[in-house]
Amino acid sequence: MQARSVWSLRLTTFMVALIPIAVAVNFVGKYVAQVLRLPLWLDSIGTVLAAILGGPVVGALAGAVNNVFYGLVQDPVSFWYAVTSVFIGLAAGYLAYRGWTKTPAAAVGLGVAVAVVAAVVSTPLNVLLWGGTTGNVWGDALFTSLRLSGFPVWIASFLDEFVIDLPDKVITVFVAYLIFRGLPERLVAQAGAVAARDAD
């Protein structure tokens, strides 16, 4: 592999073509979860996959385009959360480059890390925009009881977001990891995949 920095901004045309596909996969992941009646969102598989394949910059761009597009076609509030998506892409891309996609256990770790990053970035937005709640019934019930027990807004809001993000992001990242492992060598090589796959 050529000595290209993992943070390089130079995008090949394939990577540019990968971004809309990553966004489409985000949407379709959610759609398939609905078709199969699964109690999950699974709406960032594409972002994570783009990050694993193309690195943190491609992941971040996929995340940004995802939320801009989501804002245009589904929910105008989602523009704010483009920041979260960008950081999901950055974190997944960088950690994948550091080898967190080599084993199933590492992939679970990657999922936890992505969930932490997502919650850390979303919390200030939730607090500044909406007083700390997320709109998820279970998370907000936790928020309310923590606040009533005297916890500060920031901690209550972080946990509100995190309890929802943890299972969803772990499964999202794991599904992305399984798909990544099954991709043809030619495609992975062309993406210049920064992440490593163990030889199986």
């Binding site: 090949t12 045309t13 394939f14 540019v16 073509a17 990968l18 809309p20 596909i21 489409a24 996969v25 379709v28 992941g29 398939v32 979860a33 078709v35 199969l36 699964l38 598989i45 594409g46 996959l49 599904v175 399984l178 798909i179 099954g182 991709l183 043809p184 495609l187 062309q190």
Partner: peptide
């Protein structure tokens, strides 16, 4: 059923992205 559903969708889309590039 999640992987048999998403697998072909993602692989076909990525291959299409390769050709589209």
């Amino acid at each position: 059923a999640l992987l048999p559903m998403l697998g072909p969708l993602v692989m076909a889309s990525l291959t299409a992205a390769q050709e589209r590039a």
